[in-house]
Nucleic acid binder design. Structure first.
Lengths: 202, 202, 202, 202
DNA sequence: CATGAATGAGGTTTCATTCAT
DNA sequence: AATGAATGAAACCTCATTCAT
């Protein structure tokens, strides 16, 4: 511990420290996080973390922010590829497939984003609730118009339906993350296709 | 602090302490739990908790166990009422309605059981995973036979379907807990009925 | 450090800890105070101090309060002995003598009370200012009537005179504390007598 | 923080840093002083302070020295104006008036010099004691000869009298600093004149 | 069954200080 | 003359836990 750690630029160091933090969170949950732990695992003096992030709260905040940005960034990158003129069932199935593929390919980000892992700090919970509410608001009109275009089910509660969709997406993502071999994006897309195929249209 | 607390039988005291712990967990999450906090809120000496539960782990374990027993107990109490000879769609809808009513009527238990609130200890997560796996195993054959009896959708991935059902149940329970006014068991049952009604049967 | 310290009652322990704190403050100033230091010098675990006084602020507060009470208590004990009907010069001289004797006999208390030793916490400074203001308000009418009764000096600014008296008392106390051999209460009383004796009366 | 601070000559920079330090001490006491704080408030890298003053001790030492020099310098500048051949009472009153006017006109210096504000370092206390002892030694013969020339009070303890004078001067300075509106140099000079006027001369 | 006094470990934070650039 | 990255020490405080009574 006596010899100084390799010198890094601020940006490099911040990233490295967030990576260590991320790994620790995923492995042992937020409850296990401490500036102490991270500094030990990063083989660096505690004070370096303080100089970069102010305090524990700021450190976690930085991780949450980075994760949110990455997640949102990935979703943004995919949206332009969707052709909302197509058949609604196809749109739904393809969107789900894209999303799950993303999740499979960058599991760390999505594990952090989707599991409010043990001891998630209030801020993260709030972020998740906020994001979810935003998604519901976004999805509801799309879903309503989709249901209309495909013709039925008549009289469906579109708010609940939007929530169900998101819940299903999350559920699927969790399956993909927990056992990518057994639960591939393909399998989940096929399942969705089967379901949608049997829902009567007008 | 000076005058001794009211004397209680062991069972009474255990229950009282678990109640205090439960309230604390629901209000501030597992991260806020400490023998100290609980003993202060229960206005009792720390050592009493040790004498009843051994240590912090044992204390949390006792809460988890009590919660699991209450949850499983409630579910067990309802199962005999279900007539599996009836139309599968009806069975599904009524089972969901019963479950959500239970959740609404005993929110503390189910909030503990369903939200692995901030900093849930590993043991709780494991319990949840275990219970969920048990439910999937239980549900899968029932679901398979139900799908067959109602006739379709043909070729449905019954494992995924079982998981989806459970996910939907949980999602619904969370809605009921978070905003019982807006999300009543009725509304969710109706929604399910609408969906099932539009899924073609053979 | 391993074997537990001698068990004491809460009151005993509090007093002992305040004594250690007091000694440390007098020897090295408030800047040198730390829970750590005190616990080491008292050969006791840091946490004992926390359990008795809450935190560092509470610890210092307790010392300030104890000191104030002792000082005020001593002054209160002496006041009844003063006969305000006597010649004002005599009253003044005798009061000063009593006060300085008190200071000489309980130097620790008065050193703490009079010297806002290095790094006195804001609270102590405020206490001192408050006490001083109270004394001025108390003294001013007494001084005014005394000056009248003795006849002059005519037109004296009684507020400043009261402050001068208190300043002189403090100054004398500091001399007594710093070098009791050279600056005895007698010497200071005599000095005052000489001065007063040469101030013209009507 | 990124763009380098304006370049300054060593002398300029030293003065600027001492000014920042001085302000900080006056505002929050010595306890609040840290290289960190000063460097932040001066918007400069910590290491600059090290290169100029060596370390924290040297930094404080420099402030104390500058303050002492300014204070002593001001006093020196006034002494030649005093005509010690005049009536001793007048000399005393005018010297006090000059001193208090100085204090009023350069409050920062004198506040630092007179109030060993919270957490004054030992060195400052020692400086104050040393200066005070010097003043007593200086004053005593002057006072003795003055008392003789004015004729009485006979048999006055000149050492105590010198100390009393200094104490009174300090007390007056503190009043002037704390509330210049209410306690003007004039008011204090008048008060002194009234007192001296009523002390019998031989 | 319950209190009260004590310890030791682990974490947060602030700071003085050094060295490379 | 100045910045930027790093260390190590010292302090605060909260807890789990043990033992005597």
């Amino acid at each position: 511990m006596s010899t100084p750690a390799r010198r890094m630029s601020a940006q490099e160091r911040r990233d490295q420290l967030l990576d260590v933090l991320s790994t620790l969170v995923l492995r042992e949950g937020y409850g296990a996080v401490s500036i102490d732990r991270v500094s030990r695992e990063a083989q660096i003096a505690r004070t370096v973390i303080y100089s970069h992030f102010g305090n524990l709260e700021g450190f976690l905040h930085a991780l949450i922010e980075r994760t949110e940005q990455r997640a949102v960034g990935q979703i943004r990158a995919v949206i332009p590829d969707i052709d909302f003129e197509e058949d609604p069932d196809t749109v739904l199935i393809e969107a789900l497939r894209s999303f799950l593929t993303m999740v499979r390919d960058e599991p760390e980000t999505w594990r952090l984003a989707l599991f409010p892992i043990e001891g998630a700090p209030p801020e993260l919970r709030e972020t998740l609730v906020r994001v979810r509410a935003g998604l519901v608001a976004l999805l509801q009109p799309v879903a309503a118009s989709g249901i209309e275009r495909r013709g039925g089910p008549q009289g469906l509660d579109t708010e609940l339906f939007s929530r169900l969709l998101i819940g299903f997406g999350e559920e699927g993502a969790k399956l993909v993350l927990s056992d990518p071999e057994r639960f591939s994006p393909e399998r989940l897309a096929d399942f969705t296709a089967t379901i949608m195929g049997s829902v009567r249209r007008g």
